[in-house]
Design a protein around this nucleic acid. Structure first.
Lengths: 195, 195
DNA sequence: CTATTTATGTATTGATTGCTACAGATATGG
DNA sequence: CCATATCTGTAGCAATCAATACATAAATAG
């Protein structure tokens, strides 16, 4: 049996282009026509390779985390818990003000924007978000056990707080905030935990 | 000359229904068909009374601020600046976890969601947002002059920070966060300014 | 070679989008 | 009553939406 005609485009490259469009225009604001144009393929190729619009979006979301969420891993690898939070907030400010990227954060945008729409997308977002928060909390709990955290700071509450501040920064970035403005928010949030 | 046939529906009531739908589904996620059904009128009546979809949305946004942003005025009327911030954050938690309302904040949703779409909407959002922040900053500057603020806290930076935290809370609320979760974020943000 | 399998490009599907033409209804002014 | 002005419901506009039918092209297996 034959193996069929080989695919003529690079799936990862096409996915990157789709991600770019989704990032800029959101899930509902992006049409198949825009996607196929940006990806350089025709609708049948898109559907054969990625399923449908929702599946393509979920794959783009996954790629977004892998390609643009690396500063997260760097932060979690910081030697101290306080250094992790520092890295997280400052790199978020840096990332969100990078003018090479569309404004704002694709995940935040999707959480806020797809509420009544595709349920599977919401589930994927919720699990990615809670996993990220859990990793921060675990790191803080370790620091707490080692006595390296202010004693009146609860790791769970503080992890959630840091996430909320970052999400707020993403909203500001979507509204046009620049690097300086975002960095000031980050520095302000850091004042709660004296170095 | 005659004055014409009188309108058979209540504009404010219809606007409230439109607001409800926009709040739940966002601007792009709401169709004229959904709007006319919720408002109990037909398309020609909608267009005659409100212009078009974008104008209707902007009027709904304005009504949203008037009807659901009253806790903002209460906060600004608080006797102390610290009390204002307290009121702002706690009432935001309360408002965002009110299960009578759709999830999240319509303004935050719109900032994040309409970026490439209607430009006039973005302008309206930006001016409303910066006006709100300016009012908070002005109140803090007054407190600063009176020596009622921590000396190392800049009023402008702190006002922006409080706004960002509230916007982060709105994102969490859109993602399904409950009252307790939001209140913990609010209390955490308040710890920066010892009572 | 033929048979099979998969990808591609064209062209199109039915449904939905925001919006409106049109005719009839209901008010006021004369 | 008549003329004018505005609203209402039906019905439908062109454009766009996500998704596909179909024929052809390009690969492997035998």
């Amino acid at each position: 049996m034959g193996m069929g005609r080989p695919r003529e485009f690079d799936m990862d490259r096409a996915l990157d282009h789709a991600l770019e469009v989704f990032w800029r225009n959101g899930y509902e604001g992006t049409s198949i026509a825009e996607l196929t144009q940006a990806m350089g393929i025709n609708p049948p190729s898109l559907y054969a390779a990625f399923g449908n619009k929702e599946e393509l979006f979920r794959k783009a979301l996954q790629r977004y985390v892998e390609q643009h969420g690396r500063y997260w891993d760097d932060a979690l690898a910081a030697p101290t818990a306080r250094g992790m939070v520092e890295h997280l907030l400052r790199e978020a400010a840096n990332f969100l003000s990078n003018e090479c990227n569309p404004r704002g954060c694709l995940m935040v945008r999707s959480v806020v924007s797809c509420s009544d729409a595709a349920e599977a997308i919401q589930h994927q977002l919720a699990s990615q978000r809670s996993e990220a928060e859990a990793r921060v909390r675990a790191r803080l709990e370790r620091a707490k056990d080692e006595g390296l955290m202010p004693p009146d700071l609860d790791p769970g509450d503080f992890a959630r707080y840091v996430m909320a501040v970052m999400e707020g920064m993403a909203v500001r970035a979507a509204g046009g905030a620049g690097r300086q403005e975002l960095e000031q928010i980050a520095e302000m949030a850091l004042r709660m935990w004296p170095a």
